[in-house]
Design a protein around this nucleic acid. Structure first.
Length: 272
DNA sequence: GCCACTGTTAGCAT
DNA sequence: CATGCTAACAGTGG
């Protein structure tokens, strides 16, 4: 569920809670969600220096280690007092020095993980190595270069984190609708003007979602429990059979690579 | 109950 | 290399 705006909001809020805090213990109830190559205790008892993200991956800088958190589809991070009842499917709990608050990692589908690696080898983590440029800051020119030799359809490439990092199913569909591009369009047939429009559309939809606290459809919450509001501003995602807010035609749903794609057949005509 | 669906990604086959 | 399919898992809704 969490795509770039949701992850960015989590990072911003975690910063206000966690910078300078010293993790002293990790309680792990589901071993496969905790990936550590070295002795775990080595990574504890050091202050959190910074928190950032690359695409949808959260990175806690805890020198000389980096803690990587991926929420995948249903992962949640909660910052809660120790006496607050545990959220369902809490698999990891991180305790800190001098506070009764805890960072809790819940994930019903158990696809997410916390991986601790020496900061030195961060650039060798395969997932990070392959990750494309960030969707929030990519320029039309960079985007054009990455699309020009690709035969795949644009919807698949927007979801491909190696092509562009940060978009998921919701914001891909929203951006294509804003840019009036059919999801099945082969990437290498999209002209410069359209790529520029698509880049602008991606930036616009991500920034607006950020401003509204992200999209809370199923499980997404901020670490303090607050929910996003962008689900009220979606134009096409999940809107099959409803009128297009631009032209009134009925929104269609298409299965692309096993994922639902929503689009307006009139605003987003198939050209190629 | 059963089946189809869900916001992600890695790994494998083609 | 590029692309497409499936699995990992658990919940929800028809």
């Amino acid at each position: 569920m969490p795509e770039l705006p949701e992850v960015e909001i989590i990072v911003r809020k975690l910063k206000t809670f966690l910078i300078g805090k010293v993790p002293i213990r990790i309680i792990c109830n589901k071993a496969k969600l905790l990936k550590t190559s070295q002795c775990l205790s080595m990574a504890l008892d050091r202050p959190i220096y910074d928190i950032s993200r690359k695409g949808k991956l959260i990175i806690l800088s805890v020198p000389p280690y980096a803690w990587l958190i991926h929420l995948k589809m249903t992962g949640q991070l909660w910052w809660q007092h120790k006496d607050t009842p545990l959220p369902s499917y809490t698999h990891l709990t991180i305790l800190f020095k001098d506070t009764e608050y805890q960072l809790r990692f819940a994930d019903s589908r158990q696809f997410g993980y916390l991986q601790i690696v020496p900061e030195k080898v961060l650039s060798q983590v395969p997932f990070l190595q392959k990750l494309g440029p960030d969707a929030l800051t990519i320029t039309p020119l960079t985007f054009e270069k990455r699309l020009q030799n690709r035969h795949a359809i644009i919807k698949s490439l927007l979801l491909n984190q190696q092509c562009l990092a940060g978009l998921g199913n919701i914001y891909s569909d929203e951006a294509l609708w804003l840019a009036k591009i059919h999801p099945l369009t082969p990437a290498n047939t999209i002209n410069q003007t359209q790529i520029k429009k698509l880049t602008t559309a991606i930036h616009k939809v991500l920034k607006c979602a950020l401003k509204l606290g992200g999209t809370s459809i199923k499980s997404y919450v901020h670490p303090d429990g607050q929910k996003g509001l962008y689900q009220n501003r979606l134009f096409v995602y999940g809107k099959a059979g409803l009128p297009c807010q631009r032209c009134g035609s009925l929104i269609k749903r298409l299965k692309i690579g096993g994922r639902s794609s929503y689009f307006c057949p009139v605003c987003q005509p198939r050209i190629n």
